[in-house]
Deep mutational scan, measured.
Amino acid sequence: TETRTFDSEEEAKKAQKEAEKQGRTVTITRRDDRWEVRFD
């Protein structure tokens, strides 16, 4: 599991799309003013 933090939802969604192309499961969580993206 890898976790990355982004400043914008746009960036988080971009990372999510990339990871899903690779067949990974992605979870996006809102953390205050940041977006946390978890790759499984």
Rank of each mutant, 00 (worst) to 15 (best):
T1Y: 15
T1C: 08
T1K: 10
T1P: 12
T1V: 14
T1L: 12
T1D: 13
T1R: 10
T1A: 13
T1I: 13
E2D: 11
E2Q: 12
E2W: 02
E2S: 12
E2R: 12
T3W: 06
T3A: 09
T3N: 09
T3Y: 07
T3S: 09
R4T: 11
R4Q: 15
R4I: 15
R4K: 14
R4P: 05
T5Y: 15
T5P: 04
T5M: 15
T5E: 12
T5N: 10
T5R: 09
F6I: 03
F6V: 06
F6D: 01
F6R: 01
F6A: 03
D7K: 04
D7Y: 09
D7R: 03
D7V: 06
D7F: 09
D7G: 07
S8G: 04
S8D: 09
S8W: 02
S8K: 06
S8N: 10
E9A: 05
E9F: 13
E9T: 01
E9P: 04
E9M: 07
E9L: 13
E9D: 04
E9G: 01
E9R: 00
E9S: 03
E9V: 06
E10Q: 08
E10D: 10
E10V: 07
E10M: 08
E10P: 04
E10S: 05
E11V: 03
E11G: 07
E11P: 01
E11N: 05
E11M: 07
E11I: 04
E11L: 07
E11W: 01
E11R: 03
A12D: 00
A12G: 02
A12L: 04
A12Y: 03
A12I: 02
A12M: 05
K13P: 00
K13N: 10
K13Y: 10
K14F: 09
K14Q: 15
K14C: 15
K14W: 08
K14R: 11
K14P: 00
K14M: 15
K14H: 14
A15V: 12
A15E: 07
A15T: 07
A15K: 04
A15G: 03
A15Q: 07
Q16S: 11
Q16N: 03
Q16R: 08
Q16W: 07
K17Y: 13
K17A: 15
K17T: 12
K17M: 14
K17W: 11
K17S: 13
E18V: 09
E18S: 07
E18L: 10
E18R: 07
A19S: 06
A19R: 03
A19I: 08
A19P: 01
A19V: 05
E20K: 07
E20S: 08
E20C: 08
E20L: 12
E20H: 09
K21H: 11
K21D: 13
K21T: 11
K21M: 14
K21I: 11
K21N: 12
K21A: 15
Q22I: 11
Q22S: 12
Q22E: 14
Q22D: 12
Q22N: 13
Q22K: 11
Q22Y: 04
G23C: 07
G23F: 03
G23S: 04
G23Y: 03
G23K: 04
R24A: 10
R24N: 09
R24Q: 14
R24K: 15
R24S: 08
R24V: 12
R24T: 08
R24F: 13
T25L: 10
T25G: 09
T25N: 12
T25V: 13
T25Y: 02
T25F: 03
T25K: 14
T25I: 13
T25Q: 11
T25W: 02
V26A: 15
V26D: 02
V26L: 00
V26C: 09
V26K: 01
T27S: 12
T27M: 01
T27F: 00
T27D: 05
T27R: 08
T27L: 01
I28R: 02
I28G: 01
I28D: 02
I28W: 00
I28F: 00
T29N: 08
T29W: 00
R30Y: 05
R30A: 10
R30S: 08
R30W: 05
R30E: 09
R30Q: 14
R30I: 11
R30L: 11
R30V: 12
R31V: 15
R31M: 14
R31Y: 08
R31Q: 12
R31S: 10
D32Q: 08
D32V: 05
D32H: 06
D32M: 06
D32A: 07
D32K: 08
D32G: 15
D33C: 05
D33T: 03
D33Q: 05
D33G: 12
R34Q: 14
R34E: 09
R34G: 15
R34T: 08
R34F: 14
W35M: 02
W35V: 02
W35Y: 06
W35F: 07
W35S: 01
E36P: 00
E36V: 07
E36L: 05
E36S: 00
E36Y: 04
E36F: 05
E36K: 00
E36T: 02
E36N: 01
V37T: 03
V37H: 00
V37K: 00
V37W: 00
V37S: 01
V37G: 03
R38G: 07
R38W: 05
R38A: 11
R38K: 13
R38L: 11
R38M: 10
R38P: 02
R38I: 14
F39Y: 13
F39I: 15
F39A: 07
F39M: 13
F39K: 03
D40Q: 11
D40W: 04
D40Y: 04
D40N: 09
D40I: 11
D40A: 11
